[in-house]
Nucleic acid binder design. Sequence first.
DNA 1: GAAAAAGATTGAGTTCGTTCAATTTTGAAG
DNA 2: CTTCAAAATTGAACGAACTCAATCTTTTTC
Lengths: 204, 204
Amino acid sequence: MTGLRERQKADRTGRILDAASRLFRAQGYDAVRIEDIAAAAEVSAGTCYNYFSTKGDLLLAIVSMEVEEVVDAGRTLVENPPASTALALGSLIRLYYDHSLHYLSKEMWRKAMAFSIEAPGTPFSQRYTELDAMLSAQVCDLIGALQRRGLARPDLEPATLGQIVFNTLNQMFIEFVKADAMPLADLHRTSDAQTESLAVLMRV
Amino acid sequence: MTGLRERQKADRTGRILDAASRLFRAQGYDAVRIEDIAAAAEVSAGTCYNYFSTKGDLLLAIVSMEVEEVVDAGRTLVENPPASTALALGSLIRLYYDHSLHYLSKEMWRKAMAFSIEAPGTPFSQRYTELDAMLSAQVCDLIGALQRRGLARPDLEPATLGQIVFNTLNQMFIEFVKADAMPLADLHRTSDAQTESLAVLMRV
DNA sequence: GAAAAAGATTGAGTTCGTTCAATTTTGAAG
DNA sequence: CTTCAAAATTGAACGAACTCAATCTTTTTC
Protein backbone atom coordinates (compact mmCIF):
# COMPACT_ATOMS: atom_id res chain seq x y z
CA MET A 1 0.00 0.00 0.00
CA THR A 2 2.38 2.74 1.16
CA GLY A 3 5.50 2.09 -0.88
CA LEU A 4 8.82 3.79 -0.37
CA ARG A 5 8.04 6.30 -3.09
CA GLU A 6 4.87 7.51 -1.40
CA ARG A 7 6.49 7.75 2.00
CA GLN A 8 9.38 9.77 0.63
CA LYS A 9 6.94 12.02 -1.16
CA ALA A 10 4.99 12.75 1.99
CA ASP A 11 8.19 13.22 3.93
CA ARG A 12 9.62 15.68 1.43
CA THR A 13 6.37 17.63 1.22
CA GLY A 14 6.38 17.92 5.00
CA ARG A 15 10.00 19.02 5.14
CA ILE A 16 9.46 21.67 2.46
CA LEU A 17 6.35 23.03 4.19
CA ASP A 18 8.07 23.09 7.58
CA ALA A 19 11.17 24.79 6.26
CA ALA A 20 9.20 27.36 4.29
CA SER A 21 6.86 28.11 7.17
CA ARG A 22 9.72 28.61 9.60
CA LEU A 23 11.82 30.70 7.22
CA PHE A 24 8.93 32.89 6.03
CA ARG A 25 8.03 33.74 9.62
CA ALA A 26 11.61 34.34 10.66
CA GLN A 27 12.98 36.26 7.70
CA GLY A 28 9.96 37.42 5.71
CA TYR A 29 8.54 36.03 2.49
CA ASP A 30 10.62 38.13 0.12
CA ALA A 31 13.89 37.61 1.94
CA VAL A 32 13.63 33.83 1.68
CA ARG A 33 14.82 32.31 -1.57
CA ILE A 34 13.55 29.00 -2.92
CA GLU A 35 17.11 27.75 -2.61
CA ASP A 36 17.09 28.54 1.11
CA ILE A 37 13.91 26.55 1.57
CA ALA A 38 15.31 23.71 -0.53
CA ALA A 39 18.54 23.67 1.49
CA ALA A 40 16.66 23.65 4.80
CA ALA A 41 14.43 20.83 3.55
CA GLU A 42 17.44 18.95 2.17
CA VAL A 43 16.20 18.83 -1.41
CA SER A 44 17.10 20.79 -4.51
CA ALA A 45 15.32 23.89 -5.75
CA GLY A 46 13.89 21.92 -8.66
CA THR A 47 12.21 19.49 -6.29
CA CYS A 48 10.27 22.29 -4.62
CA TYR A 49 8.69 22.88 -8.00
CA ASN A 50 7.65 19.25 -8.21
CA TYR A 51 5.52 19.77 -5.13
CA PHE A 52 4.41 23.40 -5.43
CA SER A 53 3.89 25.21 -8.69
CA THR A 54 5.28 28.53 -7.51
CA LYS A 55 6.67 30.23 -4.42
CA GLY A 56 3.29 31.88 -3.94
CA ASP A 57 1.47 28.59 -4.09
CA LEU A 58 3.79 27.18 -1.46
CA LEU A 59 2.87 30.09 0.79
CA LEU A 60 -0.83 29.49 0.15
CA ALA A 61 -0.41 25.84 1.12
CA ILE A 62 0.93 27.00 4.49
CA VAL A 63 -1.78 29.59 4.97
CA SER A 64 -4.44 27.07 4.00
CA MET A 65 -3.33 24.72 6.77
CA GLU A 66 -3.82 27.55 9.22
CA VAL A 67 -7.26 28.38 7.89
CA GLU A 68 -8.24 24.73 8.17
CA GLU A 69 -7.53 24.91 11.90
CA VAL A 70 -9.67 28.02 12.21
CA VAL A 71 -12.54 26.33 10.38
CA ASP A 72 -12.34 23.41 12.81
CA ALA A 73 -12.33 25.69 15.83
CA GLY A 74 -15.25 27.66 14.41
CA ARG A 75 -17.34 24.53 13.94
CA THR A 76 -17.32 23.91 17.68
CA LEU A 77 -18.48 27.43 18.42
CA VAL A 78 -21.27 27.38 15.83
CA GLU A 79 -22.64 24.17 17.37
CA ASN A 80 -23.02 25.89 20.76
CA PRO A 81 -23.59 29.56 20.02
CA PRO A 82 -23.61 32.17 22.83
CA ALA A 83 -27.05 33.43 23.78
CA SER A 84 -27.22 36.80 22.03
CA THR A 85 -26.75 37.91 18.44
CA ALA A 86 -23.94 40.40 19.08
CA LEU A 87 -22.15 38.04 21.45
CA ALA A 88 -22.41 35.07 19.13
CA LEU A 89 -21.14 36.95 16.09
CA GLY A 90 -18.51 38.70 18.17
CA SER A 91 -17.18 35.44 19.55
CA LEU A 92 -16.90 33.77 16.16
CA ILE A 93 -15.18 36.79 14.62
CA ARG A 94 -12.78 37.08 17.54
CA LEU A 95 -11.95 33.41 17.16
CA TYR A 96 -11.03 34.00 13.53
CA TYR A 97 -8.98 37.10 14.24
CA ASP A 98 -7.09 35.75 17.23
CA HIS A 99 -6.04 32.62 15.40
CA SER A 100 -4.83 34.59 12.43
CA LEU A 101 -1.48 35.82 13.68
CA HIS A 102 -0.58 32.78 15.74
CA TYR A 103 1.62 31.23 13.07
CA LEU A 104 1.48 33.75 10.25
CA SER A 105 2.88 37.26 9.98
CA LYS A 106 0.95 40.13 8.45
CA GLU A 107 3.35 40.06 5.52
CA MET A 108 2.52 36.42 4.91
CA TRP A 109 -1.20 37.22 4.92
CA ARG A 110 -0.72 40.09 2.50
CA LYS A 111 1.30 37.98 0.09
CA ALA A 112 -1.13 35.09 0.39
CA MET A 113 -4.20 37.23 -0.28
CA ALA A 114 -2.45 38.96 -3.15
CA PHE A 115 -1.44 35.68 -4.70
CA SER A 116 -4.89 34.17 -4.41
CA ILE A 117 -6.34 37.09 -6.37
CA GLU A 118 -3.51 37.22 -8.87
CA ALA A 119 -3.37 33.51 -9.65
CA PRO A 120 -6.81 32.09 -8.88
CA GLY A 121 -6.25 28.89 -10.85
CA THR A 122 -3.32 27.51 -8.91
CA PRO A 123 -4.05 24.40 -6.76
CA PHE A 124 -3.62 25.98 -3.36
CA SER A 125 -5.23 29.21 -4.48
CA GLN A 126 -8.36 27.19 -5.19
CA ARG A 127 -8.03 25.49 -1.83
CA TYR A 128 -7.71 28.85 -0.11
CA THR A 129 -10.80 30.15 -1.90
CA GLU A 130 -12.66 27.02 -0.83
CA LEU A 131 -11.68 27.57 2.80
CA ASP A 132 -12.81 31.18 2.60
CA ALA A 133 -16.15 29.90 1.38
CA MET A 134 -16.26 27.51 4.35
CA LEU A 135 -15.70 30.37 6.78
CA SER A 136 -18.45 32.31 5.08
CA ALA A 137 -20.76 29.29 5.25
CA GLN A 138 -19.95 29.00 8.95
CA VAL A 139 -21.15 32.54 9.57
CA CYS A 140 -24.32 31.71 7.62
CA ASP A 141 -24.82 28.63 9.79
CA LEU A 142 -24.44 30.67 12.95
CA ILE A 143 -27.04 33.15 11.76
CA GLY A 144 -29.37 30.29 10.86
CA ALA A 145 -28.97 28.92 14.38
CA LEU A 146 -29.72 32.33 15.87
CA GLN A 147 -32.86 32.63 13.76
CA ARG A 148 -34.08 29.24 14.95
CA ARG A 149 -33.60 30.43 18.54
CA GLY A 150 -35.63 33.58 17.75
CA LEU A 151 -32.60 35.83 18.15
CA ALA A 152 -32.55 37.24 14.60
CA ARG A 153 -35.26 38.47 12.27
CA PRO A 154 -36.54 35.47 10.35
CA ASP A 155 -37.56 37.31 7.17
CA LEU A 156 -34.03 37.37 5.74
CA GLU A 157 -32.04 34.57 4.16
CA PRO A 158 -29.27 33.43 6.52
CA ALA A 159 -27.07 33.06 3.41
CA THR A 160 -27.53 36.72 2.49
CA LEU A 161 -26.89 38.01 5.98
CA GLY A 162 -23.97 35.65 6.44
CA GLN A 163 -22.35 36.91 3.26
CA ILE A 164 -22.72 40.47 4.45
CA VAL A 165 -21.20 39.71 7.82
CA PHE A 166 -18.37 37.73 6.29
CA ASN A 167 -17.56 40.41 3.73
CA THR A 168 -17.42 42.97 6.49
CA LEU A 169 -15.15 40.97 8.78
CA ASN A 170 -12.97 40.01 5.84
CA GLN A 171 -12.57 43.61 4.72
CA MET A 172 -11.64 44.70 8.24
CA PHE A 173 -9.04 41.93 8.35
CA ILE A 174 -7.56 43.06 5.04
CA GLU A 175 -7.20 46.59 6.37
CA PHE A 176 -5.61 45.16 9.50
CA VAL A 177 -2.92 43.20 7.64
CA LYS A 178 -2.29 46.10 5.27
CA ALA A 179 -1.35 48.33 8.21
CA ASP A 180 1.78 46.87 9.78
CA ALA A 181 1.62 49.21 12.75
CA MET A 182 -2.01 48.45 13.67
CA PRO A 183 -2.28 46.33 16.83
CA LEU A 184 -4.79 43.50 17.15
CA ALA A 185 -6.64 45.48 19.81
CA ASP A 186 -7.56 48.07 17.18
CA LEU A 187 -9.02 45.40 14.96
CA HIS A 188 -11.07 44.17 17.90
CA ARG A 189 -12.40 47.65 18.59
CA THR A 190 -13.39 48.33 14.98
CA SER A 191 -14.88 44.90 14.70
CA ASP A 192 -16.92 45.18 17.88
CA ALA A 193 -18.45 48.45 16.66
CA GLN A 194 -19.35 46.96 13.27
CA THR A 195 -20.71 43.80 14.88
CA GLU A 196 -22.94 45.93 17.08
CA SER A 197 -24.36 47.68 13.99
CA LEU A 198 -24.88 44.40 12.20
CA ALA A 199 -26.67 43.01 15.25
CA VAL A 200 -29.02 45.99 15.16
CA LEU A 201 -29.71 45.26 11.52
CA MET A 202 -30.58 41.68 12.37
CA ARG A 203 -32.73 42.42 15.40
CA VAL A 204 -36.20 40.94 15.34
CA MET B 1 7.53 78.80 -14.20
CA THR B 2 7.33 75.65 -16.32
CA GLY B 3 10.96 75.10 -17.22
CA LEU B 4 12.21 72.66 -19.81
CA ARG B 5 12.92 70.08 -17.13
CA GLU B 6 9.37 70.06 -15.83
CA ARG B 7 7.90 69.84 -19.31
CA GLN B 8 10.13 66.91 -20.21
CA LYS B 9 9.20 65.21 -16.99
CA ALA B 10 5.48 65.51 -17.64
CA ASP B 11 5.98 64.43 -21.23
CA ARG B 12 7.98 61.35 -20.28
CA THR B 13 5.51 60.37 -17.57
CA GLY B 14 2.71 60.60 -20.10
CA ARG B 15 4.58 58.56 -22.69
CA ILE B 16 5.40 55.83 -20.18
CA LEU B 17 1.80 55.65 -18.94
CA ASP B 18 0.43 55.55 -22.48
CA ALA B 19 2.85 52.89 -23.63
CA ALA B 20 2.29 50.73 -20.55
CA SER B 21 -1.47 51.05 -20.74
CA ARG B 22 -1.56 50.09 -24.41
CA LEU B 23 0.88 47.20 -24.05
CA PHE B 24 -0.72 45.78 -20.88
CA ARG B 25 -4.10 45.70 -22.59
CA ALA B 26 -2.78 44.26 -25.82
CA GLN B 27 -0.32 41.64 -24.54
CA GLY B 28 -1.15 41.13 -20.87
CA TYR B 29 0.66 42.42 -17.81
CA ASP B 30 3.09 39.53 -17.43
CA ALA B 31 4.00 39.35 -21.11
CA VAL B 32 5.12 42.97 -21.18
CA ARG B 33 8.66 43.66 -20.03
CA ILE B 34 9.75 46.97 -18.60
CA GLU B 35 12.15 47.21 -21.53
CA ASP B 36 9.22 46.96 -23.94
CA ILE B 37 7.46 49.82 -22.19
CA ALA B 38 10.68 51.82 -22.13
CA ALA B 39 11.26 51.25 -25.85
CA ALA B 40 7.69 52.24 -26.73
CA ALA B 41 8.01 55.37 -24.59
CA GLU B 42 11.45 56.14 -26.04
CA VAL B 43 13.26 56.11 -22.73
CA SER B 44 15.51 53.56 -21.03
CA ALA B 45 14.37 50.97 -18.53
CA GLY B 46 16.12 52.84 -15.73
CA THR B 47 14.06 55.94 -16.44
CA CYS B 48 10.82 54.04 -15.86
CA TYR B 49 12.08 53.45 -12.34
CA ASN B 50 12.62 57.16 -11.84
CA TYR B 51 8.92 57.71 -12.35
CA PHE B 52 7.38 54.53 -10.93
CA SER B 53 8.88 52.55 -8.11
CA THR B 54 7.95 49.13 -9.54
CA LYS B 55 6.12 47.58 -12.45
CA GLY B 56 3.15 47.01 -10.13
CA ASP B 57 3.06 50.64 -9.11
CA LEU B 58 3.04 51.67 -12.76
CA LEU B 59 0.00 49.45 -13.27
CA LEU B 60 -1.69 50.97 -10.23
CA ALA B 61 -1.09 54.45 -11.65
CA ILE B 62 -3.00 53.41 -14.77
CA VAL B 63 -5.80 51.76 -12.81
CA SER B 64 -6.08 54.78 -10.54
CA MET B 65 -6.71 57.06 -13.52
CA GLU B 66 -9.60 54.82 -14.49
CA VAL B 67 -11.05 54.81 -11.00
CA GLU B 68 -10.82 58.60 -10.93
CA GLU B 69 -13.11 58.69 -13.95
CA VAL B 70 -15.57 56.37 -12.23
CA VAL B 71 -15.60 58.55 -9.13
CA ASP B 72 -16.41 61.58 -11.28
CA ALA B 73 -19.21 59.79 -13.07
CA GLY B 74 -20.60 58.54 -9.75
CA ARG B 75 -20.71 62.05 -8.30
CA THR B 76 -23.22 63.11 -10.94
CA LEU B 77 -25.48 60.19 -10.17
CA VAL B 78 -25.38 60.69 -6.40
CA GLU B 79 -26.45 64.31 -6.87
CA ASN B 80 -29.62 63.20 -8.68
CA PRO B 81 -30.47 59.78 -7.31
CA PRO B 82 -33.26 57.65 -8.91
CA ALA B 83 -36.49 57.51 -6.96
CA SER B 84 -36.26 54.13 -5.21
CA THR B 85 -33.70 52.48 -2.99
CA ALA B 86 -33.07 49.42 -5.15
CA LEU B 87 -32.98 51.46 -8.34
CA ALA B 88 -30.63 54.08 -6.91
CA LEU B 89 -28.17 51.54 -5.53
CA GLY B 90 -28.46 49.41 -8.64
CA SER B 91 -27.71 52.33 -10.94
CA LEU B 92 -24.63 53.40 -9.03
CA ILE B 93 -23.28 49.86 -8.86
CA ARG B 94 -23.96 49.29 -12.54
CA LEU B 95 -22.12 52.51 -13.32
CA TYR B 96 -19.08 51.23 -11.44
CA TYR B 97 -19.16 47.81 -13.03
CA ASP B 98 -19.74 48.95 -16.60
CA HIS B 99 -16.87 51.41 -16.47
CA SER B 100 -14.52 48.81 -15.08
CA LEU B 101 -13.65 46.87 -18.21
CA HIS B 102 -13.69 49.77 -20.62
CA TYR B 103 -9.94 50.29 -20.60
CA LEU B 104 -8.72 47.56 -18.27
CA SER B 105 -8.62 43.79 -18.67
CA LYS B 106 -9.57 41.40 -15.88
CA GLU B 107 -5.92 40.43 -15.64
CA MET B 108 -4.97 44.05 -15.06
CA TRP B 109 -7.56 44.33 -12.30
CA ARG B 110 -6.32 41.16 -10.63
CA LYS B 111 -2.72 42.29 -10.70
CA ALA B 112 -3.66 45.75 -9.50
CA MET B 113 -5.74 44.50 -6.58
CA ALA B 114 -3.05 42.00 -5.67
CA PHE B 115 -0.36 44.63 -5.74
CA SER B 116 -2.33 47.08 -3.63
CA ILE B 117 -2.66 44.47 -0.88
CA GLU B 118 0.90 43.23 -1.22
CA ALA B 119 2.60 46.61 -1.24
CA PRO B 120 0.27 49.04 0.54
CA GLY B 121 2.94 51.68 1.09
CA THR B 122 3.81 52.42 -2.51
CA PRO B 123 2.68 55.86 -3.83
CA PHE B 124 0.05 54.64 -6.26
CA SER B 125 -1.08 51.90 -3.94
CA GLN B 126 -1.96 54.61 -1.46
CA ARG B 127 -3.71 56.57 -4.19
CA TYR B 128 -5.69 53.48 -5.18
CA THR B 129 -6.73 52.89 -1.57
CA GLU B 130 -7.80 56.54 -1.33
CA LEU B 131 -9.94 56.17 -4.45
CA ASP B 132 -11.53 53.04 -3.06
CA ALA B 133 -12.43 55.03 0.04
CA MET B 134 -13.96 57.70 -2.20
CA LEU B 135 -16.16 55.13 -3.90
CA SER B 136 -17.22 53.83 -0.52
CA ALA B 137 -17.97 57.37 0.64
CA GLN B 138 -20.04 57.89 -2.48
CA VAL B 139 -22.24 54.94 -1.61
CA CYS B 140 -22.62 56.36 1.89
CA ASP B 141 -23.64 59.70 0.41
CA LEU B 142 -26.25 58.06 -1.76
CA ILE B 143 -27.74 56.26 1.22
CA GLY B 144 -27.76 59.51 3.17
CA ALA B 145 -29.67 61.16 0.31
CA LEU B 146 -32.19 58.30 0.26
CA GLN B 147 -32.71 58.62 4.00
CA ARG B 148 -33.40 62.33 3.67
CA ARG B 149 -36.01 61.53 1.02
CA GLY B 150 -37.62 59.00 3.40
CA LEU B 151 -36.61 56.06 1.21
CA ALA B 152 -34.41 54.26 3.75
CA ARG B 153 -34.80 53.54 7.44
CA PRO B 154 -33.37 56.49 9.31
CA ASP B 155 -32.25 54.65 12.45
CA LEU B 156 -29.00 53.43 10.89
CA GLU B 157 -25.82 55.37 10.19
CA PRO B 158 -25.45 55.95 6.44
CA ALA B 159 -21.72 55.31 6.92
CA THR B 160 -22.38 51.84 8.32
CA LEU B 161 -24.85 50.86 5.63
CA GLY B 162 -22.67 52.36 2.93
CA GLN B 163 -19.70 50.30 4.09
CA ILE B 164 -21.80 47.16 3.97
CA VAL B 165 -23.05 47.89 0.47
CA PHE B 166 -19.58 48.80 -0.76
CA ASN B 167 -17.98 45.69 0.74
CA THR B 168 -20.60 43.57 -0.96
CA LEU B 169 -20.24 45.13 -4.39
CA ASN B 170 -16.48 45.08 -4.07
CA GLN B 171 -16.43 41.39 -3.17
CA MET B 172 -18.68 40.55 -6.10
CA PHE B 173 -16.33 42.46 -8.39
CA ILE B 174 -13.33 40.56 -7.06
CA GLU B 175 -15.05 37.27 -7.80
CA PHE B 176 -15.88 38.57 -11.26
CA VAL B 177 -12.30 39.46 -12.16
CA LYS B 178 -11.02 36.23 -10.64
CA ALA B 179 -13.15 34.20 -13.06
CA ASP B 180 -11.88 34.91 -16.56
CA ALA B 181 -14.80 33.11 -18.20
CA MET B 182 -17.53 34.98 -16.30
CA PRO B 183 -19.37 37.49 -18.51
CA LEU B 184 -20.39 40.92 -17.26
CA ALA B 185 -24.04 39.88 -17.52
CA ASP B 186 -23.47 37.33 -14.76
CA LEU B 187 -22.04 40.00 -12.51
CA HIS B 188 -25.12 42.12 -13.16
CA ARG B 189 -27.45 39.26 -12.27
CA THR B 190 -25.66 38.42 -9.02
CA SER B 191 -25.42 42.07 -8.16
CA ASP B 192 -29.10 42.77 -8.82
CA ALA B 193 -30.10 39.93 -6.51
CA GLN B 194 -27.82 41.16 -3.72
CA THR B 195 -28.95 44.75 -4.21
CA GLU B 196 -32.55 43.62 -3.84
CA SER B 197 -31.70 41.96 -0.52
CA LEU B 198 -29.82 44.99 0.69
CA ALA B 199 -32.77 47.19 -0.26
CA VAL B 200 -35.04 45.00 1.85
CA LEU B 201 -32.66 45.42 4.74
CA MET B 202 -32.80 49.18 4.38
CA ARG B 203 -36.53 49.47 3.93
CA VAL B 204 -38.29 51.85 6.32
C1' DG C 1 28.70 83.62 -20.78
C1' DA C 2 31.56 80.19 -18.25
C1' DA C 3 31.73 77.13 -14.47
C1' DA C 4 29.83 74.62 -10.96
C1' DA C 5 25.93 72.31 -8.89
C1' DA C 6 21.83 69.75 -9.14
C1' DG C 7 18.98 66.63 -11.43
C1' DA C 8 18.01 63.02 -14.74
C1' DT C 9 19.18 59.27 -17.96
C1' DT C 10 21.46 55.25 -19.09
C1' DG C 11 22.51 50.28 -19.68
C1' DA C 12 25.42 46.87 -17.91
C1' DG C 13 25.26 44.03 -13.85
C1' DT C 14 22.94 41.45 -10.03
C1' DT C 15 19.52 38.60 -8.15
C1' DC C 16 16.11 35.25 -7.85
C1' DG C 17 12.10 32.65 -9.60
C1' DT C 18 11.45 29.25 -12.80
C1' DT C 19 12.46 25.62 -16.56
C1' DC C 20 14.31 21.45 -18.50
C1' DA C 21 17.56 17.92 -20.28
C1' DA C 22 20.38 14.70 -18.10
C1' DT C 23 20.75 11.54 -14.37
C1' DT C 24 19.35 8.73 -10.56
C1' DT C 25 16.02 6.11 -7.93
C1' DT C 26 12.07 3.18 -7.44
C1' DG C 27 8.82 -0.54 -8.62
C1' DA C 28 7.37 -4.32 -11.62
C1' DA C 29 7.99 -8.16 -14.80
C1' DG C 30 10.26 -12.20 -16.37
C1' DC D 1 18.57 -11.37 -9.66
C1' DT D 2 18.46 -8.73 -13.87
C1' DT D 3 16.25 -5.69 -16.82
C1' DC D 4 13.44 -2.16 -18.06
C1' DA D 5 10.07 1.56 -17.77
C1' DA D 6 8.23 5.09 -15.08
C1' DA D 7 8.82 8.61 -11.81
C1' DA D 8 11.53 11.87 -9.30
C1' DT D 9 15.65 14.63 -8.45
C1' DT D 10 19.06 17.71 -9.83
C1' DG D 11 21.58 21.94 -10.94
C1' DA D 12 22.99 24.58 -14.74
C1' DA D 13 20.93 27.91 -17.78
C1' DC D 14 17.45 31.46 -18.75
C1' DG D 15 14.70 35.59 -18.36
C1' DA D 16 13.03 39.63 -16.38
C1' DA D 17 12.67 43.04 -12.52
C1' DC D 18 15.35 46.05 -10.39
C1' DT D 19 20.00 48.70 -8.95
C1' DC D 20 23.72 51.90 -9.41
C1' DA D 21 28.04 54.14 -10.86
C1' DA D 22 29.15 56.72 -14.79
C1' DT D 23 27.56 60.11 -17.96
C1' DC D 24 24.88 63.72 -19.80
C1' DT D 25 21.53 67.77 -19.44
C1' DT D 26 19.48 71.57 -17.31
C1' DT D 27 19.62 75.24 -14.05
C1' DT D 28 21.85 78.36 -11.12
C1' DT D 29 25.59 81.28 -9.71
C1' DC D 30 28.91 84.84 -10.21
